[in-house]
Nucleic acid binder design. Structure first.
Lengths: 123, 123
DNA sequence: ATAATATATGAATACTTGCTCATATGATAT
DNA sequence: ATATCATATGAGCAAGTATTCATATATTAT
């Protein structure tokens, strides 16, 4: 009753029969740092309020007040989220007198956003 | 001292001088439903663990155990996140005996994921 | 100077989320 | 049947997050 020679490291012999390339995959895995960075980037778009803000700014540069009207939300809430988006360099400010205008910081965002929008539509 | 005729609805006269197209933008705004849906989609990628899982599955179909090894995490935590991703139809299962293999449900995901990966790299 | 307006921000709070623990399920082997 | 292995899942908890409230800052007007 001799079993064939199998490198049996824990349970893995069952999974796929071989785990030799597991080490290889592990070596090619995304680094913790990048995983967090990428997750943080996606997180910026993972809130309905922020989605709406970006969607609005996709069309036109807008001041804070106009954004509160568009989203029908309190000024403070909007301001907080705009700061968040600004820290993420998704949005930029332009001050004119008392009012502050916000716009998308990078046209690249438009692509990513729209592509995902397309995707969610056909899901 | 007659002021020129300006539709002064609250403060908006200051912002851009005219808010006539604000109504237009509001009409073209993203619906609540879609905003939530889009946010939820992004949320799926907004956690380092899920990013790693997807990144791993981007290379190869893998069983739960192999994923716990790759991510160096508890089986339960991995299983919970896999369920999440499965509910989002980002990942699908294939059962072979006792072991369950996971893989990406949609090649579309690869595109979105990689594009964003590119973006975060040059940020 | 004071008042008014537009935005920003810190603190508090209600809500969400990701992990751990213990246990359940489902499959194979004996 | 029982035992074992791979995965799934509910409960509990700690950490994170989005909003509100009150207040601060900055700009313009008087």
């Amino acid at each position: 009753m001799e079993q064939p020679i199998v490198v049996t490291d824990d349970c893995d012999s069952t999974c796929e029969g071989t785990n030799t390339d597991l080490e290889q995959i592990k070596a090619g895995m995304i680094e913790e740092h990048y995983a967090v960075q990428l997750a943080d980037w996606f997180k910026a778009f993972s809130d309905p309020t922020r989605v709406k803000l970006i969607y609005a700014l996709l069309q036109k540069e807008l001041c804070v007040h106009d954004l509160t009207v568009l989203l029908d939300m309190g000024q403070s809430a909007v301001s907080h989220q705009l700061r968040y988006l600004r820290n993420m360099r998704i949005v930029k400010r332009r001050k004119v007198g008392k009012t502050v205008f916000y716009s998308l910081d990078d046209t690249h965002i438009e692509e990513i956003f729209n592509q995902t929008l397309q995707h969610t539509k056909h899901v």
